[in-house]
Computed example of a mutant assay.
Amino acid sequence: MALVACLLIGSAHAAAQVTRSSARTAVEAGLVDIRTQVPDIAEDIKYAGRDNFVGTRIDGYLAPKCLLLQPVADALARVEHELRARHLRLKIWDCYRPARAVAHFVRWAHDLGDLRTKPQHYPDLHKSQLLGDYIAPVSGHSRGATVDLTLQRCTADDACAALDMGTDFDFFGTRAHTDAADVTAKQHANRQLLLDAMAREGFRNYPLEWWHYTLQPEPTPHTLYDVPVQ
């Protein structure tokens, strides 16, 4: 699993081919707010606050917004509208992630004395194990085509509750694998429901993280962005 590296570019060769955009704003980068497409989409942008595996607001997150490249936002909006016809909705945790945020994750991982979030996020691992397999200096989120999210079931009056997926977001461990053997049949069925809905609009799951999806083909597969989320 490669959680915060979550969609790492995968190999040194691939990473060498990725360049950082000179864009200084979301507009210059072609990033749009998903709420321009779906104004009432559910969001809990974890890295804009303290409820995340680092335990503090992450560099580059100046506002709790989901920014994506336009084709990705369009596709995600289609997923949401299709789900609503079945009394389901998405809930978004993260979208585009500035490169400076990934650097913040790496600094945190090197601080072996900060164990505040271990019980919730990596209970079965020593923090020294997170660098490399879990946290790396390049993330696919920085390309603007990846989202972390879950599913909610809603009543006719729009009261929604998250489906049980078996782990929290950003759980470091094998139970977060989409096809994990140590989750219940219902939890697996809920993951499959999300996977099927996302796949219909071209999103591919990262199999080591049930919440992690990337639109295929990516609009800018060789470009990283570092504009702030604001």
Rank of each mutant, 00 (worst) to 15 (best):
A136I: 00
P71L: 03
L112S: 04
K91S: 02
I135L: 08
I92Y: 13
A199W: 13
P98A: 10
D59W: 02
K65V: 09
T174V: 13
G49Q: 10
V72T: 15
H188E: 05
A103H: 07
A189Q: 14
T56F: 08
T167N: 08
N52V: 08
P137I: 04
Y96C: 14
V32P: 09
T184D: 15
D182H: 13
M198A: 10
P39C: 09
T155H: 06
I92N: 01
A103M: 03
A73K: 05
A99W: 11
A5I: 00
F169K: 00
S21E: 11
Q230F: 06
H222V: 06
D51H: 14
R100L: 09
I58P: 04
T19S: 15
D74K: 08
V227F: 08
Y213F: 15
V102Y: 00
R97C: 03
A189V: 11
D114H: 02
V106A: 04
A109E: 07
L163K: 04
T146L: 07
A156Y: 07
T223L: 12
A16S: 15
R200T: 09
L163H: 06
V106S: 02
G10M: 06
D196I: 07
A2D: 12
R204C: 08
G144E: 00
N52C: 06
A176T: 05
P221M: 10
T150K: 04
A12I: 05
A145L: 00
A189T: 09
L125Q: 14
R204D: 11
W93E: 01
Q192K: 13
P217L: 02
C6L: 11
Q17S: 14
T220V: 07
G60F: 02
K127M: 07
G60L: 05
Q70G: 01
K127T: 02
T174Q: 13
Q70Y: 01
A161Q: 13
Q37D: 10
L215W: 04
W210K: 01
C66V: 10
Q17R: 12
T146F: 01
D168G: 15
A12R: 12
P119A: 13
R50M: 04
Y225R: 10
S22L: 14
A15V: 11
Y213E: 11
T214P: 06
H177P: 01
T214S: 14
H110F: 14
Q187A: 07
S139A: 12
P123V: 06
L194T: 08
F169N: 13
R50D: 08
C160A: 02
F171D: 02
G132P: 02
Q152D: 05
G166L: 07
H110M: 14
A181V: 13
A176F: 00
L76P: 04
H212F: 03
L194W: 12
I45M: 13
D33W: 08
L112G: 13
E82F: 05
